[in-house]
């Protein structure tokens, strides 16, 4: 016990030099002369911490002051466009891209993760190849490929592989700009999602799978009921990162002239020349929605923390 506390606090007259090195401050007489419980504890002061706080506070105040008083921010313009109809519609498009990209991306990612964990070397290698390819190609390059899909394949036939087709679509009609964007985002996302899911599944103790197998649980149920809920604990923080970065990454789609938030903002400032306040409109929306996602993350994580000690 005396090892972890200050000698002046314990009041025990400890033997050795440590006792004389730090006598109780402002006390007449030797330490331990009075009732040990009467000794006052004086916490260590941290003057430099206070200096740091002061400097940071001044800098913050200056920054806030600048935001409010500098007319170049044009807060009036910001307010006029923040909840403007076209902007709201473009926010909707951004959300659509995020939701579809996430849903399709993680669905395909789950399949890829299971392939990578499969007993078949062929499936493992295909999944690895996919992940390798889609992590190597910049998203923007990939999006432009999908956008120009009709140039590569004019028609998509469904039928017997290498045999006659039963029905077909014109690629142009099937993959519109929005479709191409969702496809590109989802395929890109799937490569990252696959690795996140795989890491999560591998983090589950092997004993859990054995116990489930010993109880005779079918494979699919083992995965859905035993492995995935436990894997979610380590999947969720990474997955939320991915969703947030996909959400902001949708701004890349503006190169395909899709009316999402960032594209729409560019259109508006192209017309009225108010670049900064309109960029602030986009920024505010991205911050707002990311905040909502973070709050959501908190509750979903709490749900999957059931039964966890920490």
């Amino acid at each position: 016990m005396p090892l972890t506390s200050d000698p002046a606090v314990t009041g025990d007259p400890p033997a050795g030099p440590a006792a004389t090195a730090r006598p109780a401050p402002r006390r007449a007489g030797p330490p331990g002369a009075d009732d040990p419980a009467d000794l006052k504890v004086v916490p260590v002061r941290h003057p430099w911490r206070w200096a740091g706080v002061a400097v940071t506070a001044v800098l913050l105040a200056q920054f806030a002051h600048g935001l409010i008083t500098n007319p170049a921010w044009e807060w009036g313009v910001f307010a006029r466009f923040f909840a403007n109809g076209t902007i709201l519609k473009s926010v909707g498009t951004t959300l659509q891209l995020t939701v579809y990209g996430t849903a399709l991306g993680f669905a395909l990612g789950l399949v890829l993760a299971l392939m990578r964990l499969s007993a078949s070397p062929f499936l493992r290698w295909v999944a690895f190849g996919y992940i390798w390819a889609f992590r190597s190609i910049p998203l923007i390059v990939q999006l432009l490929f999908w956008f120009n899909l009709a140039y590569l394949y004019k028609r998509l036939d469904f039928g017997i592989p290498f045999g006659p087709g039963l029905f077909h679509f014109d690629t142009m009609g099937l993959v519109g700009a929005m479709g191409a964007a969702v496809l590109g985002l989802a395929l890109h996302q799937a490569a990252y999602a696959a690795e996140i899911v795989r890491a999560g599944v591998q983090a589950v103790d092997a004993g859990q799978l054995e116990a489930a197998a010993a109880l005779g649980l079918p494979r699919a149920r083992r995965l859905r009921r035993i492995v995935l809920p436990q894997a979610m604990r380590s999947i969720l923080p990474n997955a939320t990162n991915e969703v947030i970065s996909l959400f902001k990454g949708t701004s890349i789609v503006s190169v395909m002239a899709i009316g999402e938030l960032f594209y729409q903002v560019q259109v508006v400032y192209g017309r009225n020349g108010r670049v900064v306040p309109l960029l602030m409109v986009a920024t505010a929306w991205y911050i707002l929605l990311t905040t909502v996602l973070s709050v959501l993350q908190h509750y979903v994580e709490r749900h999957y923390a059931k039964g966890a000690a920490r």
């Binding site: 004993g207 197998a213 010993a214 109880l215 494979r219 809920p229 436990q230 059931k306 966890a308």
Partner: peptide, 26 residues
Amino acid sequence: REREILKQRTGIGFVFQNFNLFPHLT
């Protein structure tokens, strides 16, 4: 087949050294 093996296992109870209870279930 896996299904037949699983059916056999339901007739054989197994208790592990490390319990292997499912921590996310009551």
